[in-house]
Design a binder for these strands. Sequence first.
DNA 1: TCCAGAAACTTGAACGATCCAATCCTGCCT
DNA 2: AGGCAGGATTGGATCGTTCAAGTTTCTGGA
Lengths: 329, 329
Amino acid sequence: MAEKVTIATVARHARVSRQTVSNVLNAPHIVRQETRQRVEDAINALGYRANQAARQMRTGRSRLIAARIDPTRDGINGSVLDRFLHGLTETADAAGYRVLLYTATDDDREIATYGDLLGTYELDAFVLVGTKYGDPRTEWLADRDVPFVTFGRPWDALDAHPWVDVDGAAGTAQATRRLLDAGHRRIAFIGWPEGSGVGDDRRAGWRDALRAAGVDPTGLHRETEDGIAEGERLMRDLLLAVAPSAVVCASDSLALGALQAIRGIDPPVAVIGFDDTPVAAAVGLTSVSQPLGDAAARCVDLLTGVLDGDHETPTPVLLQPSLALRHTA
Amino acid sequence: MAEKVTIATVARHARVSRQTVSNVLNAPHIVRQETRQRVEDAINALGYRANQAARQMRTGRSRLIAARIDPTRDGINGSVLDRFLHGLTETADAAGYRVLLYTATDDDREIATYGDLLGTYELDAFVLVGTKYGDPRTEWLADRDVPFVTFGRPWDALDAHPWVDVDGAAGTAQATRRLLDAGHRRIAFIGWPEGSGVGDDRRAGWRDALRAAGVDPTGLHRETEDGIAEGERLMRDLLLAVAPSAVVCASDSLALGALQAIRGIDPPVAVIGFDDTPVAAAVGLTSVSQPLGDAAARCVDLLTGVLDGDHETPTPVLLQPSLALRHTA
DNA sequence: TCCAGAAACTTGAACGATCCAATCCTGCCT
DNA sequence: AGGCAGGATTGGATCGTTCAAGTTTCTGGA
């Protein structure tokens, strides 16, 4: 069994002091070129890696970022988180950080977990996915000056914190415009009950795009909780009430339900979903696609900005979604 | 800002020495009841949490488990990993461990990452998802005595290591028997090319169930890479060649393709997929469901067994899948 | 040649927990 | 009352790194 290689081993091997080795690692510019080379050679020869625990003890920083992994709720939208987490892991890695997972069943437990993670692991930052009106989690973190980013806007706009989001309104607007361009006029919308930031935003995009084209959106939209059965029910309702020739949905679940409701109708009713989930790809559903890899990368950017001493509050990032065209629209 | 609460703070508050506090945490039985109570009260009052970095430095153990998060490949099977990771996080948490994510694009990089994680973070163990014939990763880890568990059998059976798996053959056999019970005789199988452990296992379950019922499986199966289009192609082929009344597939992707191929056929051809992905739930596809939460929990069980000093190699775990019945079979 | 000042490098201390060995109680027996 | 055994408690050393302060070496101008 090989001896443990510490900074002292490297120092001895390169005939310098421990501190010089440390400097080569953390502040290379203050070490003379020749010495630096000698130390780097020793590091490579010995396969030395800085022990994170020891470093953390002195600096108080763990180079660990926490992210929550949810129980896949209805299953369909779960893969969004999946893809986001992968992007996060990849980008964090490149920036020298690692992602630690945690779960929680409700806000209180989640906050308790924050305390635990901060106390025992001295986590550097948190990434929160999804935000709601009056989110107690962001408040707790902000009160304690814990760096964090949310993937999702702070809908309160009470106090600003760094965030990254995808412009949902732009997505539904783009979807609506595509349908308008294809000659559709009676374009309906199936969304979530008023009051959720994300849902209202997506509905607004559809409404504004219609108005801009001189179409009155009145009566053309329906609201429900998310779900396939719900989408199917509301689509049937819309068909009877206003006979739309196309529909934009706030989620792929709803869109999938809509697809089932219109089966057999000719000419086919166009359907566009939201999130570009695997299900959409599988059934050929056109859907608004979020740039999740980019979003994750920008989250890491914002965090490293804060962690590496940028004291100014970083500018929020609003990314543009794109339309994954398939055969339903 | 509150002072940092260390073991010394607690000791002062409880009027004992640091060591006594440490004993209360790590070996409670050697501390007198009354003293222990006083120390525990102090811990709660002060909100003390043992600093993991300091503990790790002395003990060499990080209470961190690494798990890989893959880029969602074809998207459909991605959520399996998602659900597994969630289960892992939950169970590990309960056992006092945390899950650290990593990614890698190929085996070599993955192994390099192992070295990095072990060197800098002193990870306690790895969980590998998916194994193949002659997996270099397990060999590397075993050579270095790094504790690890695989979710997936070692198909080589060369040297044993702890593993947890779901009995794929039992799943396809169960699916096949259900179809037999419903009166089907010409039950086809669409699977993956010979040579993958998982694929061969799933095909064997179908074949053996047919034989047990006195049906000759010859000519009733087709092989291809995974994918919806591939499944559709092979199903059309099967329809022309042997006109099956039912088909069992090695994945939901293949089953989804099969579903598209049989659209409009009456009486409908029964289809059963594998993995019970969100897509299956969405389109009403009957599918073999893996107990992913259980599997994750058993992985953690095996690991904690090894980490907490059980020197005997733990027994592998083979879990039974169940059939998620929907309207395609 | 000498010296100031900067640059390069070295040394001792500290982070917070655990381990080890030595000391202090406490209760019990004679 | 004195002595003893055993468990409970204590102080000091330690893990590997970085910080703060100190010392040596180098550079250039008078």
